[in-house]
Simulated scan of single mutants.
Amino acid sequence: MAEITWEEPFCAEGNNCFRIGTDPEGNAYIAVAGQEEHFVADSREALRALILEIKAGKADHLL
């Protein structure tokens, strides 16, 4: 498996922190901060849509 480069954690008020990562092939990953070994992988577009919904307060319960 390619090396994943993780960004700094994003933490919403009172919610879990999560991190976004990418690998050299351009795949995107999302994981709860501190549990990066358990991640979800998808296209950047799909993860970007999920993150926008989380930031809008619509899907924070998913993490």
Rank of each mutant, 00 (worst) to 15 (best):
P9L: 08
R48W: 07
R19Q: 13
H38W: 14
L50M: 08
A56E: 04
G14K: 09
D60L: 11
E3N: 11
L62N: 03
N16P: 12
G57D: 02
A49G: 11
N27L: 01
E45M: 07
V32T: 14
Q35A: 15
I51F: 12
T5V: 15
N16V: 06
Q35V: 13
N27K: 08
F10W: 14
C11Q: 15
I54F: 10
G57P: 03
A59I: 00
V40D: 02
L52V: 00
L52Q: 12
C17W: 04
G26T: 00
E8R: 15
C11A: 15
A49L: 09
C17A: 11
A59D: 04
G21L: 03
I54D: 00
P24Q: 09
A41N: 06
N16I: 08
K58P: 01
N15Y: 13
Q35T: 15
P24N: 08
R19M: 12
A46S: 10
N16L: 15
E45H: 02
K55Y: 11
E45V: 01
D60R: 13
E36G: 00
K58I: 05
E25R: 03
A31P: 00
A28G: 05
R48Q: 12
E7S: 12
A41K: 12
G34I: 13
E7K: 10
P9H: 13
E3M: 10
G14I: 00
E13T: 07
C11N: 14
R48C: 09
K55M: 12
K55I: 11
T22F: 15
I30W: 00
F18C: 03
N16Q: 15
H61Q: 08
A33E: 14
K58Y: 10
I4A: 01
E25N: 11
E25C: 07
A59C: 02
M1W: 01
E25T: 06
A2K: 10
I51N: 08
L50Y: 09
N27T: 01
A49Q: 09
R44F: 11
H38K: 14
A31Q: 04
L50D: 04
I54M: 10
K58L: 13
D23G: 00
K55A: 11
P9I: 09
F18P: 00
L62Q: 05
P24R: 07
T5F: 02
C11Y: 14
K58N: 13
T22V: 13
F39E: 03
R48I: 04
W6P: 01
E25W: 07
P9A: 09
V32D: 05
T22Q: 11
S43F: 01
R19C: 14
E45A: 09
E8N: 14
A41T: 14
S43G: 11
A31N: 03
T5N: 13
I54A: 06
L47H: 05
W6S: 02
C17G: 10
R48A: 14
L47V: 03
H61W: 06
A33T: 12
A2T: 11
W6Q: 01
E7Q: 12
L47Q: 03
I54V: 08
